[in-house]
Design a protein around this nucleic acid. Structure first.
Lengths: 337, 337
DNA sequence: GGCCACTGCTGAAACGATTCATACCTCCCT
DNA sequence: AGGGAGGTATGAATCGTTTCAGCAGTGGCC
């Protein structure tokens, strides 16, 4: 059926070992032989069988990456960062989308295990300590992405979301807003919980400020729009003067609702700030203030940690990277003065 | 090192063949035996080695999907559609991003070949007949996605982009615009060329209408912004009264530029229409008119074709699916009356 | 009793690349 | 001449799963 090293070897009049050497350490093989083998490979259209290679090697040369939402540009940026770094190291990235669904995440992790991946980058759905424990036992190097951990069993690359939440709401307070609403996703998502915590911290520092919490069941444009419609439906007296959305997708949805229903002007009536600073925010109805995360670098760093863990073996101490977010102020929170 | 069927077999007191049967056709094995083996598997923490499985089977149970731009929500939607369908069939999807770069695409295709993937879904960068030819020779079932083909060697799933381009510009003409600019990406991308062709067809039907073509080197928000800035820099007399952008990312960028520089109002001065109808367009400065493609369904159908080609073997006749796009009118092309 | 059918299980062979101990040359040095 | 070193090439063993021909045991039927 398929052309194998055996066929190449016969054609070139050498042994299979030599073909393998040409493939993997050509410097060990005489020049003339390399040429003969190379010619045979080309002529027969030989393509290495990765399964056989992996079987022998014991592990694959792919990194598994499971993200929460592939429709969120933040995660695709992280994926890009990871892929760039992986390429340099001769590895490839298997991108899997859990869609914030634990069952789906499990499926993907099982698949990664069966594939004996080189390592796993995981943005876990919720805490799921039992899953992490089983990953640890399994021995595949795993880096938690966009999630801090106090466990010394895993490396992690995260952004300080508490600081990000704080900085967003502090900014709203600084421009004089006091009745603030936090629009988030399911509390089981750690990013949401942390950003909320930061928001609460900022509010606590100003005596007459209040924070109202609205939780949607996912962090999508659609859910943001729904939340926005509900806010618009409130009597004007009961409306916030600022909204902090847990990510830009929600913020875009809120903006859509405000713009469509026309009853709330941004930033005059309500100041709005999102999170992630995705590319689209600059083109939204009102350019959106946001909290920027170094997404590309997160992906980079995560792969670096994986590579180091792999190189150093047993005596590798797991590292916890925490990046600082950055406030990006645009029109949606301009103070109008 | 790793636990194998051998170990499980020993533990359960059966042969390796039986363990394999429990894994793959439990109905052929006596109930008590199944239980014993299952228990042994659980106790030892046995995880199937996919490489060995693949080696034996001759091919993997993954579908390779290469997309042009993973940052474009249109493609992630296609990917989602493909993954949903693949899951049902017990397959998984390897998502690869070519970033409109032929070299990268080649790397991914080579990788797919080495992995002996079940099939390939490809949104090719440009025409690249030689690449397609080598895929065909290689024998891996391949479906061209978002690209029509007249070759009977491949199935394809596409949207009629000429019709889409026609319908976008026809709409601009219908609301009374005459000096139209097409902002596209590199002409080697077939989608761009087809949409332009449709646009030209529509313009040709109206005697006093003109079509100006501006080509950027990628279909991104950033490039759209650059194009927008250049349009703003033109003297008012030389400006178009409508712009058709080859995709929504470009359109969003144009909108950003118009809004930031403030010298062009949408739709009053310039009507704007995009392509793809991604989720974000509804939340843009001015809700964006667009041409919708059934992205999810495209992914679905592509996988279906792959499965059928696989099931029917030699006597499978390659099919060319062509979906019709749909015009979505929003504020950015309202005629102001 | 002899034969057949059926169920349940066995274990060797096969998939294809890589590794490694071994062997063969040449050349050079003593 | 003998021995060592260095450069090349060999091919059997190995990785872990699946497949399949075949064996044993049981029960039914004539």
């Amino acid at each position: 059926m398929s052309v194998s090293v055996r066929n190449v070897a016969d054609k070139a009049g050498v042994s299979v070992g030599t073909v393998s050497n040409v493939l993997n350490r050509p410097e060990k093989v005489a020049k003339a032989t390399v040429e003969r083998v190379t010619a045979a490979i080309a002529e027969l259209g030989f393509v290495r069988n990765d399964a056989a290679r992996q079987l022998r090697a014991g592990r694959s040369r792919s990194i598994g990456l499971s993200v929460l939402d592939i429709g969120n540009p933040f995660f695709t940026d992280v994926a890009r960062g990871a892929e760039d770094r992986a390429r340099d190291a001769g590895l490839s990235v298997l991108l899997a989308n859990s869609d914030e669904d634990a069952a789906r995440e499990d499926e993907h992790l099982d698949l990664f295990a069966e594939q004996r991946v080189f390592g796993i980058l995981l943005t876990p759905v919720g805490a799921r300590p039992e899953r992490l424990e089983s990953l640890r036992r399994q021995g595949t190097p795993t880096v938690l992405v966009d999630r801090q951990t106090d466990s010394s069993d895993f490396s992690s690359v995260a952004v300080d979301d508490v600081a990000g939440g704080y900085m967003a709401v502090k900014h709203l307070l600084d421009i004089g807003r006091r009745r603030i609403v936090f629009v988030g996703g399911p509390a089981r998502i750690r990013q949401v919980a942390d950003r909320l915590e930061g928001a609460q911290k900022a509010v606590a520092e100003v005596s007459d400020a209040t924070l109202d919490v609205v939780l949607e069941d996912s962090l999508s444009v659609l859910r943001g729009r729904a939340a926005g419609e509900r806010l618009c439906a409130r009597p004007a007296s009961n409306r916030p003067d600022a909204v902090f959305a847990a990510n830009d997708l929600l913020a875009m949805g809120l903006l859509q609702a405000f713009a469509m229903l026309g009853s709330i002007r941004v930033p005059d009536d309500v100041a709005l700030i999102g999170y992630d600073d995705i590319d689209f925010t600059r083109a939204s109805v009102v350019p959106l203030s946001s909290v920027r995360q170094p997404s590309h670098e997160i992906g980079h760093t995560a792969v670096d940690l994986l590579l180091r863990e792999n190189a150093e073996g047993e005596d590798f101490t797991h590292e916890q990277f925490v990046f600082q977010p950055e406030l990006v102020v645009r029109e949606s929170t301009s103070d109008g003065s």
